[in-house]
Amino acid sequence: MSTTSATSTTGVPSTPAPRAVLAGIPAYVPKPPAPPAEGPSHRLFLNENPYPPLPSVRKTIAQAAAQTNYYPTIHPERLTDALARRLDVPPEHLVTGPGSVGIYQQIGQALLEPGDEVVYAWPSFEAYPIVARMAGAVPVEVPLVDGVHDLDAMASAITPRTKAVFLCEPNNPTGTAVGTAELERFLDRVPGDVLIVLDEAYFEFYRSPNAPDGAELYRDRPNLVTLRTFSKAYGLAGLRVGYGVAQPAIAEALRKCAVPCGVGRLAEEAALTALRVEAELFERVERIVAERERMREALLGLGWEVLPSATNFLWLPTGEASESVAQEWERRGLLVRAFPGSGLRVTVGSPEANDLLITAAKEISPPAR
């Protein structure tokens, strides 16, 4: 048997070629800001919950860790049943994945084909162009207007080639929301053969009486998939648990594309316990919402422009100054996310971190509007 590698006509050893489409796909996770050389740093760039899991959840994780020599079930059946009871939906309407982004990958595999168009607002969740391009589909990006979804423009962007619409409500990275009435009008304009993915990753932080509930909206809309996650409000980002609700035909297709055992035993057990202690967890959500509003009012009072937020982060439309302002905060140990030429996304952190950010904002001149 020969052990030599095949060579090209240039004499260079040949290797298997990745799909050409990958060359145009950006990395999903950006390089995190560099922590300061000295002193503590605060992670305010990934929309993480600043509080660790509750003691009861940590106890569950420790107990489940003793069984990690066993495979989890192919699909997390106990969690599926618990979510079905929690949402009052049939279990066969539920899908799960390693975070909601895992379900996006299932959507790409199950429903998108080369040449299909995918409509979404921009800037929005950074997975959208990646999911579309990975499937060979064509991203159709519709600019936000004042940081908010332009639903009329999105509806107008739908063509006979459109296969899916991705809609983040509230939106990441701007934190803005359109509300139930406008959302329903938009949903009713989308053709029935176009999949609508309603991303409610920040559902629990949306405190307006006008907040939509995708777990209700999907019931009479066969083309609607609603996605949620345990990463944000439930504080389980490190365990990767997401879920979605959809009508049976769509849900079954997504389950077929799920990675077997994609939600591990620790993740399932932690999510089950988190559901049982929701009341205690949501006290923390209320604290985060209160801190969000305190931060926004303080920054507005210092002359910064800050959009209203329905999430666990704030959006500062700092334009061309975004990177330089982010660097000023980073030097003070506050790691925020800069979107070059657009703005800054600042996660609501612990009260201590938020106080430091407000203090730093007094020392940094806000960009001219």
Rank of each mutant, 00 (worst) to 15 (best):
S2L: 10
T4Q: 15
T4D: 13
S5N: 09
T7R: 12
T9C: 06
P16A: 07
G24H: 10
I25S: 07
Y28R: 15
V29Y: 00
P30H: 03
P32A: 05
P36A: 15
P36T: 12
R43T: 14
L44W: 07
N49V: 01
P50N: 06
P55D: 07
P55H: 08
K59H: 11
K59N: 07
A65F: 09
T68E: 15
T68K: 08
Y71P: 08
P76Y: 02
P76Q: 02
E77V: 08
E77R: 12
L83K: 10
P91E: 02
H93F: 03
S100D: 10
V101P: 03
Q105M: 01
Q109F: 07
A110K: 11
L111V: 10
P114G: 05
G115V: 03
G115D: 07
E117A: 02
E117H: 09
V119H: 10
A121K: 05
F125A: 14
E126A: 15
E126V: 14
I130C: 10
V131P: 05
M134V: 04
V140A: 11
E141R: 15
V142P: 04
D146E: 14
D146Q: 10
L151N: 06
S156Y: 00
P160N: 13
A164K: 08
V165C: 06
V165Y: 07
F166H: 13
C168T: 04
P173Y: 09
A177C: 05
V178W: 07
E184N: 11
E184M: 08
F186I: 00
F186Y: 12
L187P: 05
P191D: 08
V197Q: 03
L198A: 11
D199E: 12
E204F: 14
F205G: 01
L217Y: 02
L217T: 05
N223D: 01
V225W: 09
T226V: 14
L227T: 05
R228Q: 08
S231G: 08
A233I: 00
A233Y: 00
A233H: 00
G238P: 02
L239Q: 04
V245P: 01
Q247M: 12
P248L: 06
I250L: 15
R255N: 10
K256A: 13
C257H: 07
A258T: 00
P260Q: 02
V263R: 10
R265E: 09
E269V: 06
E269T: 06
E283M: 03
E286R: 13
E286M: 04
R296A: 14
E297K: 15
A298P: 02
G301R: 02
G303A: 03
W304G: 04
L307S: 04
L314K: 09
T318I: 04
G319C: 06
E320D: 14
W329Y: 15
R337M: 08
F339Q: 11
F339S: 09
P340T: 04
S342D: 11
L344Y: 00
R345L: 13
R345A: 15
V346P: 11
G349E: 09
S350C: 06
A353I: 01
L356R: 14
T359S: 13
A361S: 14
P367H: 10
